[in-house]
Amino acid sequence: MAAPQHVDDNSFNEVVIEAKMPFLVDFWAPWCGPCRAIAPIVEELAGEYEGQIGFGKLNVDENPKSATEYGVRSIPTLLLFKDGKPMTQIVGLRSKAELKKHLDASLT
């Protein structure tokens, strides 16, 4: 099963912006309880959407540049990119069903 790959400030452009598929980035930090809660959901989705949507995790503590660039001031935030542009911003803990709706929308 495909696990979300680790994305950092240096690799962001190459991995996320230049991705051929839609790409979901999970902005998180180790001190954030709800981030720990959403992580396993994102992992499951990475498996279910393998080959259709790319998945990554970005630690905002270690990579403040990307978080600032995309105006992330709340975590967990999931940013869904399509064609190199942020398409949907999902803030806070959400159910898997709700996340799937956003992911499916990016595939149409």
Partner: peptide, 17 residues
């Protein structure tokens, strides 16, 4: 402005400020 300065979780978002 949720997620852009409006927050409901201090432990999640405090460090951005």
């Amino acid at each position: 402005l949720r997620g852009r300065g409006v927050s409901y979780c201090a432990t999640c978002d405090g460090a951005f400020f």
